[in-house]
Design a binder for these strands. Structure first.
Lengths: 283, 283
DNA sequence: TAGTCAGTGTACCGCTAGTTACAGTTTCTG
DNA sequence: CAGAAACTGTAACTAGCGGTACACTGACTA
């Protein structure tokens, strides 16, 4: 049982101050184990009694009691190195290893130069079209969501209305096409159509043999691991995120302005729970 | 550096009482970390001053100083390996490191037991509802796509029609809710509504302080790194994929049949290009 | 045997710990 | 808009902390 499991069940019953305390504790549990009430109070920018009340709310009989509990937990954890070993050799290790491998591979491959080559057409484009098959849909969603926040005219092209949407594409646009082994007929034909229209294509695929690689202005090859019976979307998502980040760099202030504007829009419409009660502090 | 290394060099200069103290400390180092002078004195069947003198002989400026030292050692030992590494090379590739860190963390956290706890409600459910904010949309998409291939009645609830869609939910269903810091008001209220209806909730969130953690049947905490100006979806996607894979395990043949059926459907409708170079990864 | 000295425990000091009572402030609520 | 309820900090209390001065003990020395 961890500190997290201790706090989670009551997290909705916490007052703002207590939530702040919880934040500190979760960020660095050692203050609970080694620290004092005063120290924790200072770190959470509150008073000592609030710490005690926090402990009480977690079901303990004062801070001392809470500290005793976490110390016992720690003692147990330190006492049995066997547990750490057992923790490691879970089943399904193979799938997990192949994922970390794939992530490392993707990161290594998308170095600055290549990333810029991929991002440049997107940053320069008038409009951006995103096309994707099923496996890579997550990557496409991320790219769409990310790009939409930093520039206008980004479309995620629906599988069923490809033709209708794409017919207005122009050479000043750009298209990002995701597709992996068992290439979707739909995605490929759409890409070819765009190529015919003179639209520069950025391809995210899994092999230089992919039909996409040949028509793309810039492309990158990803190594796709399997998770259970399905192919993983992780490499595609990761690529999309790095791509967005690079486009932000290329667009510079233009992107930043857009983000700010979006932010203020969110603020006024209140889409988020505004959990930042940082303001009830007294000097 | 351990307690042993600390005591060894001076062990021949220790008086009988001090040797007894050393014995206690070596046998259970936690009394040093968590205990008090009085407690240690009692355990070693000696007096408080002898404890202080013992600390002095080890080169410390009193017991407090010795305790501070061992607490620092323990803190280091408890810190995650990734944190230790990051501490070392502060420079450059921060975003990439934080991603691999996050992936490792996610994989480590989603061990078999926790994964089963999360997957069980989904496997058992009559219908499955998926709710998500923007940041985690990719994870939701992957989960929806994956689950749809192995079981019927999986819905990705649209942000704008939450009420209409969810009103038919029942206790025999299950809901998977993704949400991360700056919790979407919409997602949270939807989750609360489902909880009111008696629907078991599986929460994928980023903190035990999330409003979700308290109402969830099962939940897991993800560590979300930043890529450029935005939060990464990788942990959410990874979790979704592992979850799908676990549900496949739980459902067994039922899932496999469904996959086969879908496969033959694809075959006959020809959504894929005919060649399937599944194995053209270079050696 | 008297003196020395390292080893040890007793008694006490100052301080800071955790706790509690209470009062001020804000936020619901009818 | 009044009253209640909830929240949070101030101030004061007590207990127990770590540390130190000093006295006692017993072995060794001159």
């Amino acid at each position: 049982m961890s500190v997290q499991d201790l706090i989670a069940p009551v997290s909705d019953k916490l007052t703002p101050t207590e939530r702040r305390i919880a934040g500190v504790v979760l960020h660095d549990p050692t203050v609970l184990a080694f620290g004092t009430v005063s120290e924790l109070a200072e770190r959470a920018e509150t008073s000592k009694p609030s710490i005690v009340r926090f402990a009480a709310k977690l079901g303990f009989d004062g801070f001392t009691d809470l500290q005793k509990w976490i110390r016992d937990e720690l003692t147990q954890q330190l006492a049995s190195p066997s547990q750490r070993i057992r923790h490691r050799d879970e089943s399904g290790t193979a799938a997990r290893d192949s994922i970390t491998d794939s992530v490392n591979h993707t990161i290594a491959m998308l170095n600055k130069d290549r990333l810029i080559a991929l991002a440049k057409p997107i940053a320069d484009a008038n409009r951006v079209w995103i096309i994707s098959g099923e496996t890579s849909m997550a990557g496409a969603v991320v790219l769409h969501s990310g790009l939409s926040m930093i520039r206008p005219d980004v479309s995620l092209v629906d599988d069923h209305s490809t033709g209708r949407e794409l017919c207005s594409a122009e050479p000043s646009d750009a298209a990002v096409v995701f597709d992996f082994a068992r290439y979707r007929r739909n995605s490929i034909t759409a890409a070819q159509k765009l190529d015919d229209l003179g639209v520069p294509i950025v391809a995210i695929t899994d092999s230089p043999l992919s039909p996409l690689a040949s028509i793309a202005r810039a492309w990158c090859e990803l190594d796709i691991p399997a998770v259970g019976p399905f192919d993983s979307s992780i490499p595609a998502v990761l690529t999309a995120e790095l791509l967005v980040s690079q486009v932000v760099d290329l667009l510079g202030d233009r992107a930043r302005d857009q983000i700010d504007r979006l932010e203020s829009f969110w603020q006024t419409t209140g889409v988020f729970l505004s959990y930042t009660p940082r303001s009830n502090r007294k000097p």
